[in-house]
Design a protein around this nucleic acid. Sequence first.
DNA 1: ATGAAAATACCACTAAAGTGGTATTGGATG
DNA 2: CATCCAATACCACTTTAGTGGTATTTTCAT
Lengths: 215, 215
Amino acid sequence: MNEITVCIVDDNRDLRLALEEIIGMSDGYQCIGTMSTPKEAMEKIPKLCPDVVLMDINLNSDESGIDCVRELKPKVPRTNFMMCTVYEEDEKIFEALRAGASGYILKKTAPAKMLEAIKDLHEGGAPMSSQIARKVVFTFQHTPDPRNQQGIDDLSNREKEILELLSKGLMYKEIAAELYISQETVRKHVYHIYEKLHVNNRVAAVNRFFGREAL
Amino acid sequence: MNEITVCIVDDNRDLRLALEEIIGMSDGYQCIGTMSTPKEAMEKIPKLCPDVVLMDINLNSDESGIDCVRELKPKVPRTNFMMCTVYEEDEKIFEALRAGASGYILKKTAPAKMLEAIKDLHEGGAPMSSQIARKVVFTFQHTPDPRNQQGIDDLSNREKEILELLSKGLMYKEIAAELYISQETVRKHVYHIYEKLHVNNRVAAVNRFFGREAL
DNA sequence: ATGAAAATACCACTAAAGTGGTATTGGATG
DNA sequence: CATCCAATACCACTTTAGTGGTATTTTCAT
């Protein structure tokens, strides 16, 4: 059967044990590891690859829970991170979501609701208050639409690679060095990229790359 | 006392009347207008400036409820738009949020919950399902952080203006024409912009402008 | 296996961007 | 009032970008 595997990262021993027990006792959930520091989490979580990580947002450490998520998420992209916090600290929660977390719960939440939130998270939801959702929506609204990336898929892989470097502001010379090819080849690739995207300069190409409107 | 003023846009007469009655009967809520077409909404809503608009997502018209929000929101930025939909049509809801709506409700929602959602919306929340929230969060995570706009505020207004045009991919010549100044002046402004932002080419400057990482 | 597309490379040329200097004006600020 | 700065303008020069041509090799699908 498919239990939801969970790890807990919290420097408070009592809370850690309490959470572990709640999860361990519940059907359909399994606690496969607990950690008390970001360092420990950085080591163990990539090996355990849990479905869900409950991460204290305020770890007493040189590294916050938020930073820990930022570093871990790319390494275990299929793991969902749920932040645990005592108060509704909007700014920190917002930060954590940006860093790669997908939801949060208050520590005072009742066990049943907590398990429900974990399930929700695991099934593709993002448990959060309506207020936080609004902040996220606001940012989202003022963001370019990635579907405006017209023509990007017509590019070959090499061309996409070059466009990416181009978009970082590198010169032909630098791109050539980076890819171990001649500057003239880069130039030619760029020439084709422009043709395919119907643009005629770097900035326009980069804007397309980032899904911003052409002119 | 401060009642929440509401407008309803829906082409179904029965539903419109039902909603109007629910809202009208409830303490703290006031329905100040109903409209059945996007056209009508475009005319009346800017005059009424309601706190909240309930907008049917699937209007039977040449213009959808989503497009209607897209056009109206900039005109009445302090009005919050709530989409009304029969099913959980993820894609459409997502679209509507991008277009400027701040939440949605299902039409089958019980009156009490509906009023609660309207209140939540008006108080700065964004009522939506956890699944939709997750989609929004995902997009948000893959978006640059506007706080990375380091150095932009050191620019003079003119310089910001020029950076904006630069970021659209215009040439010096075009910017000069746009602003009725000489190309050499543009060149000089850009020179100063680069100095202030510690960059040395357009793409890097544009990346800074859009809050993306320097190198 | 053969033809198409992609990746590589080089060349010649034009256009645009970037560097850095000088200089004038008008407004703000001490 | 003196001074600083933003905005304007012009110049000379170097570097980089963009256009468009040819040509070879690899890769991949028909």
